[in-house]
């Protein structure tokens, strides 16, 4: 993952430090940007999957803000409390989870193959398979993530769901739902 200087400057790890005066980079960013509006969620990914995910989120009353391809370091610039979701690759997931330690919450993670979904929720039990009449699995995932984002439940739950093979492709995808 190559980072431009601009991308690096955007992340909270790059806040200039003076001897004896360096505050927590994350903390220093919090509250600087505008707080997220009620129901807003940052949505990452650059293809049809992200679009469909956004559709499902809207059906649950959330307002997705399309951010394009995920640069995990850019999450540091978002205000505390921001909800974020989307798709990324293996490298992005490693970076994302690593950066959230002590800085945010992982509400749910998903691994999606052509005919199965493996989901982990930290917001209580998961609903059934990601299938619905006339809807894509990504939109169903959006509805499920929307529900988990809004629930007050806690506890880790993991399940694997089978579903009819996705005719649009076989590439595996990784999804996430986090709160900063």
């Amino acid at each position: 993952m190559k980072l431009t200087r601009r991308q690096l400057l955007k992340n909270g790890l790059l806040v200039g430090a003076a001897p004896l005066a360096m505050g927590a980079a994350w903390t220093s960013q919090a509250g600087v940007a505008d707080a997220p509006a009620q129901g807003e969620i940052s949505l990452y990914g650059a293809d049809r999957s992200a679009t469909e995910l956004g559709l499902g989120l809207r059906q649950k009353g959330l307002t997705p803000r399309y951010e394009g391809r995920l640069d995990p370091l850019s999450l540091n610039a978002l205000p505390s409390g921001t909800l974020a979701t989307g798709f990324t690759d293996e490298a992005g997931l490693v970076l994302l989870t690593s950066l959230l330690a002590g800085r945010g919450r992982i509400l749910a993670l998903g691994r999606h193959a052509a005919d199965a979904d493996q989901l982990v929720s930290h917001r209580g039990p998961l609903a059934g398979p990601l299938v619905a009449e006339g809807s894509s699995w990504q939109a169903a995932l959006g509805r499920e993530y929307g529900r988990l984002a809004l629930t007050g439940r806690a506890g880790r739950h993991a399940r694997q769901f089978r579903r009819p093979a996705d005719a649009t492709g076989t590439a595996s995808e990784l999804s996430f739902l986090i709160r900063l």
């Binding site: 490693v94 989870t97 690593s98 959230l100 330690a101 002590g102 800085r103 945010g104 919450r105 992982i106 509400l107 930290h122 917001r123 806690a154 506890g155 880790r156 709160r179």
Partner: peptide, 15 residues
Amino acid sequence: VLTDSDQLAPYTKIM
């Protein structure tokens, strides 16, 4: 002091 499952989740990621 973090104790919630979703706060601790990043500390459970192993490779």
